[in-house]
Design a protein around this nucleic acid. Sequence first.
RNA 1: GCCCGAGUGGUGGAAUGGUAGACGCGGCGGACUCAAAAUCCGUUGGUAGCAAUACCAUGUCGGUUCAAGUCCGACCUCGGGCACCA
Length: 936
Amino acid sequence: MENKKIEEKWQKYWDEHESFKAETGSDKKPYYILVEFPYPSGSGLHVGHVRSYTAQDAMARMMRMQGYNVLFPMGFDAFGAPAEQYAIKNHIHPKEAIAKNIVTFKNQMKTLGFSFDWNREFSTTDPEYYKWTQWQFLKFYEHDMAYKATVPVNWCPNCKTVLSNEDAAGGVCERCGTQVVQKEKSQWMLRMSDYAEDLLKGLDDTNFAEKVKLGQINWIGKSIGAEIIFKVDGCNEEFTVFTTRCDTLFGATYCVLAPEHKLVDIITTEEHKKEVADYKHACSLKNDLERTELNKDKTGVFTGAYAINPVNNNKIPIYISDYVLASYGTGAIMAVPAHDERDYDFAIKFNIPIIQVLEEETGKKANNETKKNSIVAILYDEKNDKYLTINWHELGGRLFIGGTIKENETPLECAKREILEETGYENFELVHELSKINHHYYAYNKDKYFNIESTGFLFKLIDNEKVEQNLDEDEKFDIEWVTKEVIEKEITDELHKKTFEYAIKPGAMVGDGIHINSEFLNGLNKDEAIAKMLEFLEENKCGNKQVNYKMRDWIFSRQRFWGEPIPMIYCEKCGWVPMDEKDLPLLLPDVAEYEPTDTGESPLAKITDWVNTTCPKCGDAAKRETDTMPNWAGSSWYFLRFMDPHNTKEFASMDALKYWNKVDWYNGGMEHTARHLLYARFWVQFLYNIGLVPNKEMIWTRVSHGMVLGSDNQKMSKSKGNVINPDDIVKEFGADTLRTYELFMGDYELDCPWNTDSLKGCKRFLDKVIRLKDKVIEGNEYSKDLETIINKSIKKVEYDLTHMGYNTAISTLMILTNKYEEQEHITREDYHLLLTLLNPIAPHTTEELNEELGYKPLCETSWPKYDEEKTIDKEKKIGVQVNGKTRAAIKVAIDEDIELTKEKALNENNVKKHIEGKEIIKIIVLPGRIVNIVVK
RNA sequence: GCCCGAGUGGUGGAAUGGUAGACGCGGCGGACUCAAAAUCCGUUGGUAGCAAUACCAUGUCGGUUCAAGUCCGACCUCGGGCACCA
């Protein structure tokens, strides 16, 4: 068969017969399958697009045959930076470049036979479409969901342009490599953070894959905690901090304000003014990346002011540091170095006291415990990189030096005394005192349960001078210097193990434990203490429970040309005035220059004819907003437009929206499951709240696919030279071969490398299917011998095509084909069945063969039904195990008597061999599945 | 650092807790051919053995179970996302 001719023939047929047209309002059950629309770049369709489009296409084709009214649309997401860059370089209007690319994309999609309903196609750059994007922006504005705010942006001083975070990756301008700085700019914002809780709750009304839900949850970043008010000592000021660990308030030893915090200049004392000003200035020069990635080392300065800890009235110093972000929480924190890593680092660097208020708990709690205080001392010999241990042999294994604190003795004195007594070493110095641990244990020699508060110490050996050990008779142990590895292997006591962990990696204890040094919280664990502290704060009016979200408002302005113009007008007299709805769309002007201006404004700012207008409110001269919308805007509601794409009165009618109800199945890349999906859900929820869409969530299932990698297992890229062009493959092997291979290559949800050899195997498979036609004889029923495998295959393919098991659907069809091949003859109906099942995957070849057979086109026939009874094998080979090891296989009939199966199993020679001379304890028989004989 | 995901033959990958390696690629041997391509037949996890078969084998180490690639715990490696979010 000649691929090209057949492919074109059927593509033409589908086009002319509008075979895939979705009918809004049809009586058939609607089903909406959506695959992310592409950005029509100059390089054409990627084999990755082909994989996901083919997968959804197969599903759509099958479901149509099953009688669904399937909406499977396609369009183009064509605003954005690449087209603009291309325009700047070549002085072509992006509109023209995009139009050309769309033609290429569409042709490519057609040659692959995707069953999109092309009647519904649009591009986000069509004025008929972006008119409604602008209209929706006006709705946001009308409902006070859009506002102007001054926010810092990435600024390249060389290019004089604002950069997106992506373009400023690594802190340098992507284009010229200049250091990016932060600059304040007035931007349009959408109040997305108001929707944080609804976006979180809404997930319950979706069927998103679990990992997708998690991505959304993480992005929203809800944290429950408390706000606590700190008064500033000696003046009337106060500030509020946010914390998730109000239980550690007794351990707060300082506070930090973000450098941008309003109070900083007010509370800074005279002698610290210069230092603080200098620090603030230095921070303003840093961009986000320097403040985070490049600069984990803590910096900061003291303001000279003190805050009052509301729980104990302690005076604690107030610092400013850029590790506290102005944009999260209240822009101020209480610092608890003992129980927060960042605070710990800062406290160590600035020599601020560390107060432990939580003890980690080890061992098992028991009743009737006797309390005592003790120490664990670790002595380290730097020269030999070894630690001093005591080997109690069978009496207690290997431990460090330990002991009980005597009356009138500090823990440190106790530790020093124990080292001297037990080992004789006398010259050593303290390195660290470690966090206290609350340990439970049972002492066999005393038959008593103990609960001890253990203080750990790390000492460094100075020299080997020793005195005579002062030992009791019954103390039988050896003193041994050992390496870290030996300790990790041989010290099993929980307390000593934990102490060693603290010793080699000092830091904050951030886990749960038992509160100490915390008055009314002492003895409580973390959750209990949080609850109790919240009570205290509220009673004393110095704090309350508070929820915070990482998600911020959406910065909606771009200083770009190629985007939807924001339909707002600035009037000196009236301020920001929205455009009149009837004047939409506000078209992008035709110009020849797309370079941003020197001031970082959009290129639109230079087009005075366009910018200058009149105020819709007072009629005076006014200016248009020259910023445009982000790329995310158009893609936040395109799936709604597909439901009613030609509506000129509304973005989509409520009737159409209600008919289709939701996107039933939405497939896209993992990279879009966080942001795009969140923006789209936010947009929809807003439309729902103002009564314009029927559901709060308009997307039911969201799934994602893996990437198609180059044959070198690397992401395909021109520079790596590993790019596969789908056109070449179609030309050489045919569209159906490419389609089959892309689905067969591997697990659809995982990345998979390209392999042209494997592709050839798929061609072989299709050729085999074609050759089968020579075996066809008359017959309107399935061959008797093939009934079971046919029914099984229908069931399996049907399941797999709706559960992303595309590769196993194809392997099922390969097995069926191989089975057919073994036959002398197959009936016309056998063959028709195979062609029907294969049709969603390889539509051209199967349509052609089907036509030769004399049937009406497959796209107009219905999906075969299977008979559950006939999917079950009458006879099956099952394994026989002895003690879980497979020793033989037997054939069993369906519904065979268990006793008979047992007998057969026991009669197998190899089974006999393995049970010979042994006692049979039991025989497990799962009919039709397994026999396991347990012997002793 | 945190959150996901993944580790199975030479290779892409299959396996509702039940004969691990389906299906495909590649390899090897053979048929057809003057030859090649295409096609067909056989074989193909490792070790030992003529064979029957035995042992080993799903990243590592433990555990649960009659039975673990699959469930639980600890860890290692790779990929992705987030990253001073208090």
